[in-house]
Structure formats: structure tokens, C-alpha cells
Simulated scan of single mutants.
Amino acid sequence: MTITAEDVYRLAPFVRTLGVEFSELTPSAVTARLTHKVELSTTGGGLHGGALMGLADAAAAVCAALNSAPGALPATTDSTTHFLRPVHGAAHAVAAPIRVSRTAVVVGVQIADESGALCVHVIQTVRTRVPQPAAAAKEE
């Protein structure tokens, strides 16, 4: 299955609003970047934790979708974030599957700063569900 950045922006407009840019979209790794903007910063000028969690969530959801049945829609059910150090400048995320099942994908996301130092580590569980046609849903 192929997913493009435009597909992500269409299905999840918040990802574009946040400013997430994707550079690699494969089942084995999703890489994304969040440019530092004053509007996304917090005390001390680093990127706000919510912005970093948004970056991680977007990368993890795309990774889960790429590791699921065609047409599956991702929905985060659990996310644990470890903030290790502030991110000054752009944030670079790499999301990779840890465990893939029929209905969920556990994804690890590493976020580094521009120097390559690890700043945030996220483990996220993303459920994946293929929407059923209306007639099939009524029969269930």
C-alpha cells in the first residue's frame, strides 16, 4: 500500500496545520520533521510538548496504516511519552513498528533535535480498522 503526505493531510488536516513534513513513508519507517516556530514554543524557547506529541502521533498513525490492511483507518488507543531533553530548532521523528497484529500496531517513535540528540521517546498503540460498507455493518 502507498500513502503520500497529501493523503495524510487530507485524512488528518491537523497534521498539515501543525506543520508536519514527511520525508519517508514506508512500512519499516516513517520519518517526519516539525520546523520550530515561535507559535509552537514554550518556556525557554523549546518546542512545546504538545507539538512534539502531535508530531509523534502523526508519524505513528501513518506507520500503523502502512502496516495494516488497505483502507484501514488508524486510531491511537494508548501513548506513553518520555521527554528526555528540550528540542530547540527543528524536531526529527522516526516511527517504526514494534509489533503488528491484525487489529493494532505498536509503534516506537524517536524524536531528535537538529544535532541528532534523542529528545523524546514515544511508544504508541494504534488500532486499525477497515471501515465496513453500510450494508455489511447493518448485518452485524
Rank of each mutant, 00 (worst) to 15 (best):
V120I: 14
P27D: 04
T31Q: 13
P74T: 07
Q124S: 14
G116C: 07
S28E: 15
H88L: 05
L118A: 08
T80W: 04
S28K: 09
A59H: 08
E39T: 11
A135K: 08
V109H: 01
A59C: 08
S68V: 05
D57F: 07
A91V: 05
A64P: 03
G54H: 04
I98G: 05
P13V: 08
E24T: 14
T77E: 01
E21W: 02
T77Y: 02
M1G: 13
V87M: 00
A58V: 04
E140G: 14
A32C: 08
V122K: 02
Q124P: 00
G50T: 14
R99E: 07
G50W: 14
T42D: 03
L34H: 11
I111L: 10
A65F: 04
P86V: 06
H36E: 12
S28N: 13
P131S: 14
S79L: 15
L118P: 06
F14R: 10
V30A: 03
H36R: 10
V120W: 02
A112M: 12
A134P: 09
L84P: 01
V109P: 00
V105W: 03
P131L: 05
L73Y: 05
K37T: 13
A64H: 02
C63Y: 07
P97M: 11
E114H: 03
T81F: 06
V122T: 11
T26L: 10
T26N: 09
E6P: 06
P27R: 12
P131V: 10
N67S: 06
I98M: 12
E6D: 15
I98T: 14
V126D: 01
F83A: 00
R99H: 13
A95T: 00
S23G: 02
P74E: 01
I111Y: 03
L34W: 12
A112C: 12
A91R: 03
M53F: 14
E114W: 05
H121K: 13
L18D: 02
P74N: 03
T80L: 05
K37D: 12
L47Q: 03
L25K: 03
V30M: 07
L18V: 12
P13F: 15
V15N: 07
L52A: 04
L52Y: 15
R10D: 15
I98Y: 11
T128H: 05
A95G: 08
G19Q: 08
G116D: 05
P97Q: 06
P13A: 04
V38P: 10
V38Q: 15
P86I: 06
E24P: 00
G50I: 12
L84T: 10
R129Q: 13
V62K: 06
L11G: 15
A32P: 03
F83S: 01
A137F: 15
V38I: 09
A137Y: 09
N67H: 03
P74Y: 05
E6L: 10
T125E: 11
A137G: 00
T35N: 08
V38R: 15
A90I: 07
A112W: 07
R102V: 13
A12V: 14
P70M: 03
D57Q: 09
P74C: 04
H36L: 07
V94Q: 11
E114A: 12
S41Y: 01
G50P: 12
T128F: 04
K37Y: 08
V8A: 12
S23T: 15
V130Y: 13
R129L: 07
A134Q: 12
